[in-house]
Amino acid sequence: MFGIWYNFREHAYVKGRKKVYEYIKGTVTFTSPYYIVVEKNGLGYQIAVANPFRYSAYLNQEVTVYLHQVIRDDAHLLYGFATLEEKQLFLKLISVSGIGPKSGLAIMALDDHSGLVQAIEAQDATYLTKFPGVGKKTAQQMILDLQGKLDDVEIDVSETTTISTQEDLFTVEPTQQLDEAIEALKALGYSEREIKKIKKELESYQDKTTDEYLRIGLKLLMKK
């Protein structure tokens, strides 16, 4: 019989033969539209996160990322979160039938989760279907499973993004940051058709970081 032991250096425990990671404290060495890489003790851990470019400001700096591990026959996958509260919300989301880790990350890509909580409490399935990978049946299941269970979710009202009116729009040349943000939206599961609807308005913003373009794009998508 296998016991449980803690490896404090890696912040993981072993139950049976499976090593389960709680968090990693290491250096961010790479960001992409799909994942980040955190280096620890000479190893680079590929970690899928909701908004990889959120970590661009921390390149070559030490961060703590809370982890959820998914073990499949063909891969061992790590999903990362900036706070323990974010991880707990993710675990609640993927407990709903029809929501996998990819859909869970897409739902969490918006830093402000007030719309999610309000939609579930108000039984607004239409709003929930705006998230990629969430159909009407899954939206109804989210309401059934999560209503009244998200009281501990922190609502971020500290940061607001001003969305341009039609009169404010003008076309600018695409930038690398904008292109990266669009790739990140695709990585979250948004379709070319959905992105096309907001692309002109997204292009109207100038001198934004990839992270800022992505945040604006997500807000625009939830308004459509």
Rank of each mutant, 00 (worst) to 15 (best):
F2H: 11
W5M: 07
Y6S: 03
F8Y: 08
A12I: 04
V14T: 15
K15P: 01
G16S: 02
G16V: 04
K19A: 01
K19N: 00
V20E: 12
V20F: 08
Y21C: 02
Y21Q: 00
E22V: 09
G26E: 04
G26Q: 02
G26A: 03
T27H: 01
T29P: 00
T31Y: 02
T31A: 07
V38K: 01
Q46Y: 05
Q46C: 03
V49I: 07
A50M: 11
A50Y: 11
P52Q: 04
F53R: 07
R54L: 15
R54P: 00
Y55F: 13
Y55K: 01
S56E: 08
A57P: 01
A57W: 01
N60D: 15
Q61V: 03
T64F: 00
H68V: 11
Q69C: 09
Q69R: 15
R72W: 05
L78N: 01
L78G: 02
G80N: 04
F81P: 09
T83W: 10
T83E: 09
K87N: 05
K87Q: 14
F90A: 12
S97K: 14
G98K: 10
G98M: 11
G98N: 10
G100C: 12
G104D: 08
G104S: 09
G104A: 08
A106P: 15
I107S: 06
I107F: 08
M108I: 05
A109F: 08
L110R: 15
D112K: 12
S114I: 12
Q118D: 15
A122C: 09
Q123E: 15
T129H: 01
K130W: 00
F131V: 05
F131P: 05
G135W: 10
K136G: 15
T138Y: 10
T138S: 15
A139P: 13
M142P: 07
M142A: 06
M142N: 05
I143E: 06
I143V: 12
Q147I: 00
G148Q: 00
K149N: 04
K149C: 02
I155V: 13
D156A: 06
V157H: 14
T160A: 07
T161N: 04
T161D: 03
T161K: 07
T162R: 08
T165Q: 02
Q166I: 13
D168M: 07
L169I: 09
T171L: 03
V172R: 10
P174R: 04
T175A: 00
Q176P: 01
D179N: 13
I182Y: 02
E183Y: 14
A184R: 05
A187H: 03
L188N: 05
L188S: 07
G189V: 09
G189M: 10
Y190A: 10
E194I: 04
E194C: 06
E194W: 08
I195W: 03
K199F: 05
E201H: 06
E203H: 01
Q206R: 11
D207K: 10
K208Q: 12
T209Y: 05
E212Q: 13
Y213E: 02
Y213P: 02
I216L: 10
L220S: 11
L221H: 08
L221I: 14
M222K: 05
K224Y: 00
